[in-house]
């Protein structure tokens, strides 16, 4: 019996977005079908994975992931170079944790200096993230944006409570920008519209609908991502056609499953594999839901996710 495949075609497509410069630049987006659906449309490129680096030693990371970086994580420059040169990172995501008022309260100038040093040390694209303290991020990211001028880096995250300052800084320095809202397609859309009203080019935006960890709200992120992708494609909604970011590592490496010893919970199996698996499974779920850029921590989890992407054979 001849079978007619029920293909879906959509009017919309996601924006292509490039970060970084030269032959190391990375482009994501541009597909006119759901994630990995190359069998019925155009998926011009694979999703990208960024390695997370922090501006201070990872004293709150569990052993499984902290020990990988123990010889390099005393400073962000050695850490970033290690990710790029030894682990093959195609993108570095530098998180300015130490600027958080509770984590050292480093000044905007100190943060800008850190970013300048990391920029000088690497040649892959850079994502710079604040400490997720809305007020402080606004002050820090303005200074950081000046240092990033002309590098086509990705800056984040602009949220409802601080977007005006950060958007202005990204515009003035010609940067790409992450807009984050909390697990609601309408909030994502609204923030993207507000940012657009300031004159920011919608094709320079990345949407972060907020991540979560496996077993800790994963299904919310998963469904918001699927709904955003469907709205972008089926409804051709330009306010939701930005590539999506999943900031995975920071949610995964704080849950109990990545920390509890096997001796205490024998039914949960090996702690090391469990932690890496938790990050890889969380990340893979978001890729299936439509994420274009992942920020992750453990190189083995990243390796597994890259093998999964290769198995999809979209190229």
């Amino acid at each position: 019996m001849p079978f007619t495949p029920p293909k879906e075609s959509y009017n919309g497509k996601t924006f292509e977005l490039t970060i970084g410069q030269g032959d190391k630049a990375v482009t994501v987006g541009g597909e006119n079908v759901l994630a990995f659906h190359a069998f019925e449309g155009s998926v011009p490129r694979e999703p990208a994975v960024a390695f997370e680096v922090q501006d201070m030693p990872p004293d709150d990371w569990p052993e499984t992931v902290a020990e990988v970086f123990k010889n390099v994580s005393s400073g962000p420059v050695t850490w970033a170079k290690y990710c790029q040169d030894s682990l093959g990172a195609g993108i570095i995501a530098l998180r300015l944790v130490s600027t958080h008022p509770d984590r050292g309260d480093a000044s905007a100038d100190q943060a800008a200096e850190t970013v300048r040093k990391v920029l000088a040390a690497i040649n892959v694209p850079l994502i710079v993230l604040g400490s997720n303290h809305a007020e402080k991020d606004a002050a820090v990211l303005v200074k950081v944006a000046e240092v990033l001028k002309g590098t086509n880096s990705l800056l984040g995250k602009a949220q409802e409570s601080n977007y005006k300052t950060i958007v202005a800084a990204a515009m003035a320095n010609d940067l790409k920008l992450i807009a984050m809202s909390e697990l609601d397609i309408n909030l994502s859309k609204q923030l993207n519209i507000l940012i657009g009203q300031m004159g920011f080019d919608k094709e320079k935006l990345v949407t972060d609908p907020m991540s979560s960890a496996l077993s800790y709200g994963l299904e919310y992120t998963y469904s918001v991502m699927e709904r955003i992708k469907l709205a972008a494609l089926a409804q051709n909604d330009a306010t939701l056609q930005a590539p999506m970011l999943a900031d995975v590592g920071m949610f995964v490496w704080k849950v109990k499953e990545t920390q509890a010893a096997e001796a205490d919970l024998p039914a949960w199996g090996s702690l090391r594999e469990r932690g890496i698996e938790w990050e890889a499974v969380t990340a893979t779920s978001f890729l299936i839901a439509g994420a274009d850029i992942l920020i992750m921590r453990h190189p083995e989890a990243i390796g597994a996710v890259k093998k999964f992407i290769a198995d999809m054979e979209v190229k």
Binding site: E219, Y222, W268, G269, L271, E277, S285
Partner: peptide, 20 residues
């Protein structure tokens, strides 16, 4: 069926199959 793998896959199955 290693235990660490079971835990992750069971959890994912539970997440995907909850009533939205």
């Amino acid at each position: 069926a290693e235990r660490w793998k079971n835990l992750a896959l069971f959890s994912l199955r539970q997440n995907i199959y909850t009533d939205p």
